[in-house]
Design a protein around this nucleic acid. Sequence first.
DNA 1: GCGACAG
DNA 2: ATCTTGTCGC
Length: 229
Amino acid sequence: MITPTEAITLQEQLRTQVIATDALPHPIRTIAGTDVEYDKSTNLIAGSVVVLDYSTLSVLAVASHCMEVSFPYIPGLFSFREMPPLLEAYRQLTITPDLIICDGQGLAHHRRFGLACHLGVTLDIPVIGCGKTRLCGQYQDLGETRGSVAPLIAEEDQAVIGNALRTRDGINPVFVSIGHKISLPTATGIVLKMATQYRLPETTRLADHYARLALLEYKTGLNEPPVSI
DNA sequence: GCGACAG
DNA sequence: ATCTTGTCGC
């Protein structure tokens, strides 16, 4: 397996391939969400990709994959843990989404190469990073109402690496950043549009649901081996 | 050295 | 991520 040191070297190489401007189809017809679920006791990890119709939010396709965890959790090397099940799930899809919203950061990362960038560069499709909590960067003066935005500023060079975005009045913001082939304003607008009823975008909520389901199904399958004739 | 630290 | 019910507040 890849070592943490090798992973950092790979990030430094791949980061140069990130495209931080809009290169997505218009109009957008389909949007996918990805999420990963863990089972601490069995060391299993399940990744899911769910594709939605962009205008109706109806589910068009779902794919999941369960496997053993192959990389430890190290802040900054998170993508090496979640990429394997996500890539396998994505491979099973019969349709290619116009873009993906993944759970976790994109450029809002210490080396500017979070999961959203890694997934985007690897699949070569537009990806938005949307994390539930902050990894790095500082923000201030974020309004309390839905739609309020404050830039996420990197400590070291004051670069804008993402946005803190309030998707519901008085509720903790989400952290939006560029993954690949999309600009920050576009990414922020899309996340706000996808998060109407709840704090998280519908894509993430559905992917979370299907990943949890895949993990449960896989575990019950292990407990009930196939019957012999 | 100390604190921070996506899931 | 996960361990985990009720409870406080909009």
